[in-house]
Simulated assay, not measured.
Amino acid sequence: MEIKELLNQTNKLPNVPEVVRELIQALNNPNVDYDQIAQKVSEDQTLSLKILRLVNSAHFGLSRKVSSIDEATVILGMGQLKTLVIASGFAGSVKDVDGIDIKTFWAESFRVATLARWFADHTKQVESDIAFTTGIIHNIGRLLLHLAQPNRAKAIQTLIDEQKVSRTKAELERLGFTSQDAGQALLDMWKFPPDLGIAVKNYKAPLVSESPQPLSAVLHLASYMNDCIRESRNLEDVQEHFPRDIAALAGINSDIIDSLADAMKLESGLDGLAA
């Protein structure tokens, strides 16, 4: 099959709010009017209620209740509000997905995003906002596949489980492309910054792409650490197998290995958005 067959099923695509798309399209625009975007968030009742519920949760520990998006912007700053809007917008973009535990899917996406931002903070080559956003959407192609072609998605999972092959190999065998390819195509269709789509496409093997990219490398490192956390690996094993060559591509000093214990303790604080 071809990727366009997935994209043509517009009724099955994730329903991402327009204001979230605007925020992501504006990530590289220093002249964006964030006051106008905050106003649009306020006008989206579902989105604003989810954000305010999270802002007033124990994770933020505010001394008083926040009752409006404007107030949240003043207290948290636009940077933090952007994080919450993008995370909330994507977490609410689909409800039930055949073959995917959607709560776990977004919880892991949020953790990858948090780790990506942590790694970006250790290099001058990647903006933390862009790293975080790319982390949230890094697996959007797999979500698209399950929404548009649930039977094919199940067949791929069966192949992985029964023959113990990698997801990439199984997808290429059953589809002729990977879910990362599909993810890039979807992001391009949404007119997101090209670097995001390239990172999503190449993050599993950033060193062998035609143009190795620091953002792809940061996303690879975040995904690696997420795997380690999910599998409860011990710190020594995490450090031993840490991909130093990919960290170098990201512009991250090898000393980062001594701080990986801190990365393993990170919490996104966003899991409530996926509930």
Rank of each mutant, 00 (worst) to 15 (best):
K265V: 00
D255Y: 07
S67W: 01
L235E: 03
L81E: 02
L47K: 00
C228G: 10
L266N: 00
A263C: 02
E240R: 15
S254Q: 14
A250K: 03
D195L: 15
R21H: 10
W106P: 01
Q45I: 04
K154N: 06
E231P: 02
D258I: 04
Q45S: 05
W118Q: 08
E236S: 12
A275Y: 08
E162C: 08
R142D: 12
A148N: 09
A274M: 07
D271L: 02
E108T: 02
I160L: 09
E240G: 04
G141T: 13
T114N: 10
S93L: 08
A185N: 04
W118E: 09
I156Y: 06
E267A: 00
I3S: 01
T46P: 00
I257E: 14
F192N: 14
W106F: 12
C228N: 11
V200I: 14
A87G: 06
A131K: 11
V20D: 09
F60I: 00
R174F: 13
T168L: 10
Q25P: 02
V94N: 10
I252W: 04
S268Y: 01
S128D: 15
H241N: 14
V85D: 00
Q125S: 15
G61W: 02
R117C: 11
N226F: 03
A120N: 09
T158N: 13
L76N: 12
F242N: 12
R117A: 15
P243V: 07
L13F: 00
Q180E: 15
R233V: 03
Y34Q: 10
D121L: 14
K169F: 10
A274P: 08
K50H: 11
A72H: 06
L49R: 12
D188T: 11
A263P: 03
K103A: 10
P194S: 14
L76M: 14
K103Y: 04
A248P: 00
R142N: 14
K164Q: 14
V238K: 08
A247T: 03
I75L: 15
S128H: 15
P214H: 08
A248T: 06
L172C: 04
V32A: 10
D121R: 15
I69A: 04
N139E: 15
V20Y: 10
A131N: 12
Q25W: 01
I256V: 14
I130W: 11
K65W: 00
G176M: 13
A248F: 01
F110C: 01
R64I: 02
E171S: 07
H146T: 12
R53K: 14
A38E: 06
A222I: 05
T158L: 11
G99C: 07
F242I: 12
W106I: 01
D121I: 05
N29G: 03
L186I: 06
L54A: 10
K40G: 05
G251S: 05
L147C: 15
I3V: 08
